[in-house]
Measured scan of single mutants.
Amino acid sequence: RDLEAFAERFKQRRIKLGVTQADVGSALANLKIPGVGSLSQSTICRFESLTLSHNNMIALKPILQAWLEEAE
């Protein structure tokens, strides 16, 4: 599925960039996405391991996609 593929790709890119889950969570606040502050390390972990609810995964995907584009 698309979400699973993105979560795996996100994790691989994050590791390759040398960024921790906690770093991603705090960096999201710097993107200044309306309504989005920082996220906890555990939320990033649960996204990568696909243990969040489907609706949460869908909500987080564009936010994490934006971070990934900014980081690369």
Score class of each variant (00 low, 15 high):
residue 1 R to A: 15
residue 1 R to P: 08
residue 2 D to Y: 09
residue 2 D to V: 06
residue 2 D to C: 04
residue 3 L to D: 03
residue 3 L to K: 00
residue 4 E to D: 07
residue 4 E to H: 10
residue 4 E to V: 11
residue 5 A to K: 07
residue 5 A to I: 13
residue 5 A to N: 15
residue 7 A to V: 15
residue 8 E to I: 13
residue 8 E to G: 10
residue 8 E to N: 14
residue 8 E to H: 13
residue 9 R to Y: 12
residue 9 R to H: 15
residue 9 R to G: 12
residue 9 R to W: 10
residue 10 F to I: 03
residue 11 K to C: 03
residue 11 K to E: 00
residue 12 Q to D: 10
residue 13 R to Y: 02
residue 13 R to G: 12
residue 14 R to H: 01
residue 14 R to M: 02
residue 14 R to F: 00
residue 15 I to S: 07
residue 15 I to M: 15
residue 15 I to L: 11
residue 15 I to C: 05
residue 17 L to M: 13
residue 17 L to C: 02
residue 18 G to T: 00
residue 18 G to I: 01
residue 18 G to M: 02
residue 19 V to Y: 15
residue 19 V to M: 14
residue 20 T to A: 08
residue 20 T to K: 09
residue 20 T to L: 03
residue 20 T to Q: 03
residue 20 T to G: 05
residue 21 Q to A: 12
residue 21 Q to E: 07
residue 21 Q to P: 09
residue 21 Q to L: 13
residue 22 A to Y: 06
residue 23 D to R: 08
residue 23 D to S: 12
residue 24 V to P: 00
residue 24 V to E: 01
residue 24 V to W: 01
residue 24 V to K: 01
residue 24 V to D: 02
residue 25 G to C: 15
residue 25 G to R: 07
residue 25 G to F: 04
residue 25 G to V: 15
residue 26 S to P: 02
residue 26 S to N: 15
residue 27 A to V: 07
residue 27 A to Q: 14
residue 27 A to H: 09
residue 28 L to Y: 02
residue 28 L to I: 15
residue 28 L to S: 03
residue 29 A to C: 10
residue 29 A to W: 01
residue 30 N to D: 12
residue 30 N to E: 04
residue 31 L to W: 14
residue 31 L to P: 05
residue 31 L to K: 13
residue 32 K to A: 10
residue 33 I to T: 06
residue 33 I to R: 06
residue 33 I to A: 07
residue 33 I to C: 05
residue 34 P to V: 06
residue 34 P to C: 02
residue 35 G to M: 01
residue 35 G to N: 10
residue 36 V to N: 05
residue 36 V to E: 10
residue 36 V to M: 08
residue 37 G to E: 08
residue 37 G to Y: 05
residue 38 S to M: 13
residue 38 S to Y: 14
residue 39 L to F: 09
residue 39 L to Y: 04
residue 39 L to N: 03
residue 40 S to D: 14
residue 40 S to Y: 02
residue 41 Q to P: 12
residue 42 S to K: 14
residue 42 S to V: 10
residue 42 S to G: 11
residue 42 S to N: 07
residue 43 T to C: 08
residue 43 T to S: 06
residue 44 I to S: 00
residue 44 I to M: 01
residue 45 C to P: 05
residue 45 C to G: 14
residue 46 R to D: 15
residue 47 F to S: 00
residue 47 F to L: 04
residue 47 F to A: 07
residue 48 E to A: 01
residue 48 E to L: 00
residue 48 E to H: 01
residue 50 L to D: 08
residue 50 L to V: 11
residue 50 L to K: 10
residue 50 L to I: 06
residue 52 L to H: 02
residue 52 L to Y: 00
residue 53 S to D: 14
residue 53 S to P: 15
residue 53 S to V: 04
residue 54 H to V: 10
residue 54 H to T: 14
residue 54 H to C: 05
residue 54 H to L: 12
residue 54 H to R: 15
residue 56 N to T: 13
residue 56 N to R: 10
residue 56 N to D: 15
residue 57 M to T: 02
residue 57 M to W: 05
residue 57 M to Y: 00
residue 58 I to N: 11
residue 59 A to H: 07
residue 59 A to Y: 13
residue 59 A to I: 14
residue 59 A to F: 04
residue 60 L to V: 12
residue 60 L to I: 15
residue 60 L to M: 12
residue 60 L to Q: 01
residue 60 L to C: 10
residue 61 K to Q: 12
residue 61 K to C: 13
residue 61 K to D: 00
residue 62 P to H: 08
residue 63 I to C: 08
residue 63 I to R: 06
residue 63 I to W: 05
residue 63 I to Q: 04
residue 64 L to T: 02
residue 64 L to E: 02
residue 64 L to M: 06
residue 64 L to W: 00
residue 64 L to S: 02
residue 65 Q to E: 14
residue 65 Q to R: 06
residue 65 Q to V: 06
residue 66 A to S: 13
residue 66 A to I: 09
residue 66 A to E: 13
residue 66 A to M: 07
residue 68 L to N: 08
residue 68 L to A: 04
residue 68 L to D: 03
residue 68 L to M: 04
residue 69 E to Y: 06
residue 69 E to C: 12
residue 69 E to S: 11
residue 69 E to I: 07
residue 70 E to M: 06
residue 70 E to L: 04
residue 70 E to V: 09
residue 71 A to H: 08
residue 71 A to S: 09
